[in-house]
Design a protein around this nucleic acid. Structure first.
Lengths: 197, 197, 197, 197
DNA sequence: TATGAATGAGGATTCATTCAT
DNA sequence: CATGAATGAATCCTCATTCAT
């Protein structure tokens, strides 16, 4: 019984998180009520509360997912054998962002932006954001190191600083995409390439 | 009577906005209640509501300010006679951001991040954000044009794309500053400079 | 100074009552706020409150007027030398009601209906309504007496009861006019005439 | 579960409406606060709001009931086989009114008068009042037709007009009963009878 | 005296969470 | 175990009235 129950529990949990995410994408964390999530998930109030003991916990779960989703892909792609220049790394990251944003789950980047705001006043989400972003930015340190190694950038450059910039370009892209709506991975990458040379 | 009254009204309005901003910086838009603002402002409920007819309107006013405050400075500085390279423009912008963030009013960038999230589900704030950010990014188009003119970047570069990148670096800085806490205008600028050559 | 001031005061008072009546006709007693009355009257809050020391007092003044306005006309007309049969008396009364209702002041009968409701929970208005309606109904006792005298109705009829019926027909007319909108003095009177013979 | 739940829901709803009616009878629509209704009903705010989504909706429900309650009885009684003369019909109606008014539920006619006033500025209540009163008055058209048939009134009388008068006598009775307090079905009916002959 | 800005108690409504069935 | 009705504290907002200028 344990295994079946476990799968069942996992499926249920996902069902709730996905429903909640849909609500949050559509209305944001605060306009989304537990009643909305309950209705959207098709479960009962009691059921939802047996998986998440408060709205805060559920919100944290959604935020975690949204903030962390990039990670897996990053690891795979940036750790590949291909020549990973800063520009390529950025493009890959942005392309993933757009793919995720246009996926069938709805635009996860909207949840991400919500999470940024939430992190400022919510310990748990702050902690998640800090650690996930530190991790993510770490990949760009690798990228910077490689770039120094192959002479793409100066050997005495500070890889941390370069990583800050490369990583920092991503929120800027996400925000412009959502609020100004006129950026593309290709164009944005071209902009960076133009600056670099 | 008009003049005194007008000044008075303006002062009162500021008194409210400032109180509200303090609350929002401390707790975010949603945890801030009108009662908080009323208490913090030292006025009565009725008085506050005679200046802002709803919480939404007050929130919009704070968001407007937070999103727009950069503008004035930008105009002055970027339009100066000094040689304005992309790197210099960015540094100036970031220095302003940090100055504002560390000002006596409290860290306005926190309000800015709140506003990003809010813009996704609030027409009025979305409109403000769109227009202010389009304007702001416009300054970087000028910067890019100058850079093309003096050979800092390739003459056939797309100024819009370059501006997207330069402008995009700012939210990335703000976010890292708030969530990772380890970025400085100097370091971030150095990172960009290292990438550029 | 007294006289001028007195006229002035009377004029001001009327100005307020008329403004208030317009508001009440449009929105009812309860949706009408003192702010509405103040704006409509063109005076200041202080001025309005120097004539009526509370909303209740102002409301009472409007109700008084609305409940009592019929009286003057009644006295004049019913006390005339003409042959005043029950049917004629009713018609005259209804014609006056319609005239007043269609007057330039707006439909006063709407205020009357408000006053009925208000009288149930407002001592002052209840007192006014009782006395005005007792007075008004009194005229119909006269009418009944005359009718008994000239054989229009049985000599042993109870004039009070007849007056109750004749007077009672008026609210019924007012209400049907406002809510069903299809009654006229002529038709209603014809209905009574048909019943009588 | 459906059946129990349904009965339960109906009972709860009645519990709320009855509590609200008691409040309205005692204080009128506007002085009655939701807090009053909540306390009087013995339920919680949330419970009350799960049955009526606003005070307006609850008020409309009470008004509906008050305006419509006569109907059922009318239908039964006026449609009976007994000889239904205008005078008898009126008496029956008035007796029902008094019975209802003196019932254990409290004086519903007070709610009715409130509803008249409310109908003037509330679409929903206006609609209810119009349709219920049109219906009610319709019964008196039948009465008039019968009276024409058996010669009680002239064959060429306009039944609509006669119905307007007969129906119109009721509000007049209700109002005099509440405000002057000296009418009885018997006396009022006698007054009409005296006029008729 | 006249003004109208300010007051603040009071009212309607929401919603995260619980727990009896 | 699951359900979803019920809870009630918390929140936004209004408006009659006052009083400093």
């Amino acid at each position: 019984m344990p295994k079946v129950t476990d799968e069942h529990r996992t499926a249920r949990r996902s069902q709730i998180v996905e429903a909640a995410r849909r609500c949050v994408i559509a209305q944001g964390f605060h306009k989304t009520t537990m009643a909305d999530v309950i209705k959207e998930s098709g479960l009962s109030a009691g059921a939802v509360y047996s998986y998440f003991k408060s709205k805060e916990e559920l919100v944290a779960a959604i935020a975690d997912e949204a903030l962390g989703s990039v990670d897996q892909v990053f690891r795979a792609i940036l750790a590949s054998a291909e020549p990973v220049t800063p520009v390529n790394a950025l493009r890959t990251a942005l392309e993933y962002v757009v793919t995720a944003a246009e996926g069938p789950e709805g635009d996860v980047t909207r949840v991400g932006v919500q999470a940024w705001a939430e992190a400022l006043h919510n310990e748990a989400i702050y902690a998640t954001a800090s650690s996930k972003y530190a991790l993510l930015r770490g990949y760009f340190v690798d990228v910077a190191d490689r770039a120094k190694a192959d002479g793409t950038i100066a050997a005495d450059a500070d890889s941390q600083q370069v990583a800050q910039v490369l990583f920092g370009l991503i929120p800027g892209f996400v925000l412009q995409r959502l609020i100004l709506g006129d950026v593309t991975p290709a164009g944005y990458t071209a902009g960076l390439a133009a600056l670099i040379r």
